[in-house]
Design a protein around this nucleic acid. Structure first.
Length: 656
RNA sequence: GCUUCCGUGGCUCAGUUGGUAGAGCGAUUGAUUCGUAAUCAAUAGGUCAGGGGUUCAAGUCCCCUCGGGAGCUCCA
C-alpha cells in the first residue's frame, strides 16, 4: 500500500496500518504532536486503519484540525474531572471552539475555586495518561448504555441520530463519552490548558429548556502558546472600549439616565463630530448625496404603512397607549419611511434618479435589558443613514457604488483588513418574518451574489439574516473578545416603494416603481468609536484625536511663548492645549503620554528665542527641534490626508 | 427578558466570626521654576448604588429596585 505524505514523499507499507502507526513511523516527535490525520482531505482519527493507497497528512501543531482535536480531548478530561469531583453532575455537550473549548453540565454554578479544583483534578487525570479508546454500539444499545449511566442529555443526543447508525464512544480509563472524535491517543499529550470561566447556557441554546452551567477553557500544544493566548486576553481587557473609553474620558453612563444611553464627554463628542463631518462631506461632495432632516418620532400610522408595526413593534419605544390615547407615537427605529416622504414631496422624473438622500439621524431601539453593552449595543444611537431611490437599470451600479464608498471609509480608518462580508438572506422556511414573493427574494439575492463575486470580495451567506423587506450585504467586525458586530449594511429593497406608492415618470410618461438601497457608509458612530478604541488601543490616528497637540512649557517662565504656539496651532484648526501647571517637564510628558496625545511640543528658552518647538511624538519619540511653521505644515498635511502613522515599539508604560 | 457574579471617596482596591470606614493614585492649596515618563508638603472628598427588613448594633445577614460584568436569547 502506497501512502503519499503531505510533503509529497511516498511511503510503502506491506500491510494495513493505523494513522497513528504511520505518524510514529515518520517521526517520533511528530507523532507526539499528532492529533489526527487527513485521508484524501477528510479528517480522520489517529486510530483509523489505512488499508489502501491514499494521500495522508498528519495534523499537528498549528493545524486547525489538530488543535481542535487537542481541545476536544481536553474537554473530555474536564468532563471526567467534573464527574470525579461532582458525581451528580450530568453531561451535556463539550465541543472545541475557536478560542478553546467548553463543556456544559447540569449542576449548580461553578465558582472560581471549583474551577481551580477542577484544573488540579484534570492535571491528575492527564498524569495518569490513560489511552483514549474508541468503540461503537448500535443505536438502541447506545441509548440503553447512556440510560444506565444516567446521562439524560446524552440519551437525547443519540435519539436524534439516524436509527441505523453505529454510535461511537470514546473512553479514557473509567470515563466514557458519546463522541464522533477525533481525539488524541492519550490524555498525557495535553501539555498546556487553562479553565477560563463559567457561565450559564441553555440546553440546545433554547431558553425554554434546561439551564446548564458552561465551563470555558482553552488548550495549546505548548505552554508558551498558552501563555501567549492568556497575554492576548489580558491585552484585550486593556483595549476593551467599555473600560478604556471611560478611562480616557470619552464617554460615561449614569444610573438615573438609563441603560444603553451613553453620555459623550467633550473628548468623545469631539471624535464623533470629526467622524460625522468627514462622512457627510465625503458623501455630499464626492458621491452626490443630498441631506435631509426629518423628525425623530411619528404617529403609529407611519410604521403601519412601512410594515414596522407588524414586523418590528417589539423593538420600538411606543409613546402612548393604543387603548386610551387617540394618537399613538413611536420614536423612530430607522429613517426609511421619513426619507420616502421627502422623495415623494415632488414628482420625480427618470432624469432625477438616482436620488441619494442621506441624514445623520438618531435612532431608538428598545433592546432587552441584557443586550446592552458599552457603546456597541445601545438604545439610542446616531448613524449617517441613506436611501438611494434608483431606476431598476441603475440598481447594480449604485449598489456597487455603495460598496465602494464603504470600502473607502474602512480603508481610511485603517480597518479594511479586519472585516468580513456577509450576504444576509431571507429564510424561506419562515415566511412570516418577511414581505414579498420568493421569486423577488431569489432574484435580488442572486444579484448581490453576482456583484460581490465580480468585485472579488470573499463573503459568506447567512440564511435568515435579511431585513424583512430585502436581502443585504453586512460588513462585520470582531471586537477584542472575538464577538462579531455589524458595522456597515447595504440593503437591496425592491418592495417598500410599493408600500409607500413611490414612483418616477419614465421616458414614455408612465409611472414606474423605483428600487431603493438602504445603506450606511460607516456604522453608527457609537459602535464605530468603540471599534476604533479597541483597534488602536486609544492611540487614534492624529486626525481623529480629540487633542492632537499638547504644548509643554519647561517652566512657567515660558508660558507666554506656549500660549503663542497654541494660538498659531488653533489658527490652523489643530486641536491643541497647553499644560501650564508648575510641574517638571518629565511629569508633563508622562501625563501626555498616558493621555495618548500624538504630539507634544516642549518649549523653553531655546525654543522661545528662535521660534522653534521640540517635537516629541507618539510615533517616533523625540523628533528634535524644528521651526513652529514647519511643524504646523507637517501636522496639517497628516490631518488632511488622514494618515495613519506607525507607532514606535511600545515603550513600557509605567503606571502607578 | 433569562441565569449568574458584582456595586465601598473621581479611579484601583482593603475592611477579619455583624461593633457605626481606610490606603494608593487623582483633586485642591502652598512651596518649587525645573530640558524629555512621577518635586515636596498640607488639605478636602464617602447616608459604603437606592429602598425595606432582621438585630441592642448592618458596608458586613435577608428581600426588592437600579446599575455593571459574563453567558444565553434577541438584533432593521
Amino acid at each position: 500500500m502506497k501512502i503519499v505524505l503531505k510533503d509529497g514523499s511516498v511511503k510503502e507499507y506491506g500491510e494495513s496500518k493505523s494513522v497513528y502507526e504511520i505518524a510514529l513511523d515518520i517521526s517520533e516527535g511528530l507523532a507526539r504532536a499528532a492529533c489526527c490525520g487527513k485521508i484524501d482531505g477528510n479528517t480522520v482519527d489517529l486510530r483509523t486503519v489505512v488499508d489502501r493507497d491514499c494521500e495522508l497528512s498528519i495534523c499537528t501543531a498549528g493545524d486547525e484540525e489538530g488543535l481542535a482535536a487537542l481541545r476536544h480531548t481536553t474537554s473530555h478530561v474536564l468532563a471526567e474531572a467534573v464527574k470525579n469531583l461532582f458525581p451528580d453532575a450530568k453531561l451535556a455537550i463539550g465541543p472545541s471552539i475557536e478560542t478553546g473549548f467548553y463543556y456544559d453540565f447540569e449542576h449548580a454554578p461553578f465558582s472560581r475555586e471549583d474551577l481551580d479544583a477542577l484544573e488540579a483534578e484534570m492535571k491528575k487525570i492527564i498524569k495518569k495518561g490513560e489511552k483514549l479508546e474508541k468503540f461503537t454500539l448500535p443505536r438502541a444499545e447506545a441509548i440503553k448504555y447512556m440510560e444506565e449511566r444516567q446521562e439524560p442529555y446524552k440519551v437525547e443526543l443519540i435519539q436524534d441520530l439516524p436509527k441505523d447508525a453505529q454510535i461511537s464512544f470514546y473512553s479514557q480509563g473509567e470515563f466514557v463519552d458519546l463522541c464522533a472524535g477525533p481525539h488524541l491517543m492519550s490524555t498525557k499529550n495535553i501539555k498546556a490548558f487553562k479553565l477560563i470561566s463559567s457561565s450559564m447556557a441553555y440546553w440546545r441554546g433554547d431558553s425554554n429548556k434546561a439551564r446548564l452551567q458552561r465551563i470555558y477553557g482553552t488548550a495549546y500544544y505548548k505552554k508558551e502558546e498558552l501563555a501567549e493566548h492568556l497575554e492576548r486576553m489580558e491585552d484585550a481587557k486593556r483595549r476593551d472600549h467599555n473600560k478604556l473609553g471611560r478611562e480616557m474620558e470619552l464617554f460615561t453612563t449614569v444610573d438615573v439616565i438609563g441603560q444603553g444611553l451613553p453620555l459623550f464627554t467633550p473628548k468623545g463628542a469631539k471624535m464623533l463630530m470629526k467622524l460625522q463631518r468627514w462622512i457627510e462631506d465625503l458623501e455630499d461632495k464626492e458621491w452626490g448625496y443630498v441631506r435631509t432632516k426629518t423628525p425623530l418620532m411619528a404617529k403609529s400610522d407611519l410604521y403601519k404603512m412601512s410594515g414596522h408595526w407588524d414586523h418590528y413593534k417589539e423593538g420600538m419605544f411606543v409613546l402612548g397607549d393604543e387603548e386610551k390615547d387617540k394618537e399613538v407615537y413611536a420614536l423612530r427605529p430607522m429613517t426609511c419611511p421619513f426619507q420616502y416622504f421627502v422623495y415623494k414631496n415632488t414628482q420625480k422624473s427618470y432624469r432625477d434618479l438616482p436620488y441619494r438622500m442621506s441624514e445623520t439621524s438618531t435612532l431608538f431601539r428598545a433592546e432587552d435589558s441584557g443586550e446592552m453593552h458599552g457603546l456597541t449595543r445601545v438604545r439610542q444611537f446616531t448613524i449617517t443613514e441613506a436611501h438611494l431611490v434608483v431606476r431598476p437599470d441603475q440598481m447594480v451600479e449604485e449598489f456597487k457604488g455603495c460598496i465602494a464608498l464603504a470600502k473607502h471609509c474602512l480603508t481610511t480608518l485603517g480597518v479594511e483588513e479586519d472585516v468580513t462580508y456577509h450576504l444576509s438572506k431571507w429564510d424561506p422556511a419562515d415566511r412570516e418574518k418577511y414581505i414579498g414573493e420568493p421569486e423577488v427574494w431569489n432574484e435580488t439575492e442572486a444579484h448581490i451574489r453576482e456583484i460581490l463575486t465580480e468585485l472579488h470580495i470573499p463573503f459568506v451567506e447567512d440564511v435568515g439574516e435579511a431585513a424583512f423587506y430585502g436581502p443585504k450585504v453586512d460588513i462585520n467586525a470582531k471586537n477584542v473578545y472575538g464577538k462579531e458586530d455589524t458595522m456597515i449594511t447595504i440593503q437591496w429593497d425592491a418592495l417598500l416603494a410599493e408600500q409607500f406608492d413611490m414612483y418616477y415618470v419614465d421616458q414614455n410618461g408612465d409611472k414606474v416603481r423605483p428600487y431603493i438601497i438602504h445603506r450606511t457608509s460607516m456604522g453608527c458612530y457609537e459602535r464605530t468609536l468603540a471599534w476604533l478604541i479597541e483597534k488602536y488601543a486609544g492611540k487614534f490616528p492624529t486626525w481623529l484625536c480629540p487633542e492632537q497637540v499638547r504644548v509643554l512649557p519647561i517652566s512657567e517662565k515660558y508660558e507666554e511663548y506656549a500660549e503663542k504656539v497654541l494660538k498659531e496651532l488653533k489658527a490652523r484648526d489643530i486641536d491643541a492645549a497647553t499644560d501650564n501647571r508648575s510641574e517638571k517637564i518629565g511629569f508633563k510628558i508622562r501625563e501626555a503620554r498616558l493621555a495618548k496625545v500624538p504630539y507634544m511640543l516642549v518649549v523653553g528658552q531655546q525654543e522661545e528665542e528662535q521660534e522653534l518647538v521640540s517635537v516629541r511624538s507618539r510615533f517616533a519619540g523625540d523628533e528634535g527641534q524644528k521651526p513652529l511653521g514647519e511643524f504646523i505644515d507637517q501636522i496639517c498635511e497628516e490631518i488632511r490626508t488622514k494618515e495613519i502613522r506607525k507607532e514606535i515599539a511600545q515603550e513600557e508604560e509605567k503606571r502607578s
